[in-house]
């Protein structure tokens, strides 16, 4: 197996002095998908936010591409190739789809003209966004907004893509489509960290599964070694 791109060890983090994550460790490899599972409130999102630089780290280490992430400001991590798609489709609602995608490439420090050329990569992946490129992002359907959010992240040419509940609030057919796209992305060598509550859909695409409950890891294993879905589900429910 190749070396992991991101190694998180004994992470403790939270909001202010509210600690939501006590001891979480996981790894993400290039060309593979690591899935972080757990109920709501278990600390998945908080862990991602710490990796993205939005939450302060109280303890533990985060090593990305051989260096510690902690000294890098949140916006600087994007330039290093860490892209984070938050849950809840947080697109810039009043700005057009095209403007949203352009902003996705902000960290490339290119002129607007040059960035415009990059848009085609995204339109190829999500053709619908090309049709809607001049509509305000807020007017799109939930699934399309999710595509805008993922498209924004991909515009930055990331090496590590973190997706927080991309299936949240989407119809099953759309969930399947989103998961298929996510699965296809890893073939280009992208390291993907996926947070999900929908266990089955996530395990389907996963190479590695880590389950956390109340801020602690309860299961961590390559998918090949645990084929018992029931065990994962029980672990998620704190049993």
């Amino acid at each position: 197996m190749t070396d992991p791109l991101l190694t998180v060890e004994h992470l403790a983090t939270g909001y202010g002095d509210l600690r939501a994550v006590w001891d979480v460790s996981f790894q993400v490899w290039p060309g593979r998908i690591t899935v972080l599972l757990g109920r709501n409130g278990s600390g998945k999102t908080t862990s991602l936010r710490a990796v993205a630089g939005l939450n302060p780290v109280h303890g533990g280490t985060m090593t990305y591409d051989g260096r510690s992430l902690e000294s890098v400001a949140a916006h600087g991590r994007v330039a290093l190739g860490v892209s984070y798609v938050q849950e809840g489709k947080r697109v810039f609602r009043t700005q057009t789809v095209r403007e949203n995608l352009l902003l996705g490439g902000y960290s490339l420090k290119l002129r607007r003209r040059a960035l415009e050329n990059e848009l085609d990569r995204i339109y190829e992946l999500f053709p619908i966004l090309h049709d809607k490129r001049d509509d305000p992002a807020g007017s799109l359907s939930g699934g399309q907004q999710q595509m805008v959010a993922i498209g924004q992240a991909l515009m930055a040419k990331p090496r590590l893509l973190m997706l927080d509940e991309p299936s949240g609030g989407l119809a099953p057919s759309v969930v399947a489509e989103v998961m298929a796209r996510v699965s296809a992305l890893k073939d280009s060598g992208l390291a993907i960290l996926l947070v999900e509550q929908a266990v089955e859909a996530a395990v389907d695409v996963a190479d590695h599964v880590t389950v956390i409950d109340i801020g602690k890891v309860v299961v961590s294993s390559p998918v090949g070694e645990i084929d018992d879905l029931e065990r994962i589900k029980d672990a998620c429910m704190g049993r």
Binding site: A74, H75, A79, S83, R90
Partner: peptide
């Protein structure tokens, strides 16, 4: 609109 989302796009707010 959303300064946190802006930070995540690499914008030095």
């Amino acid at each position: 609109q959303d300064d946190e989302a802006a930070v995540l796009r690499g914008i030095n707010v």
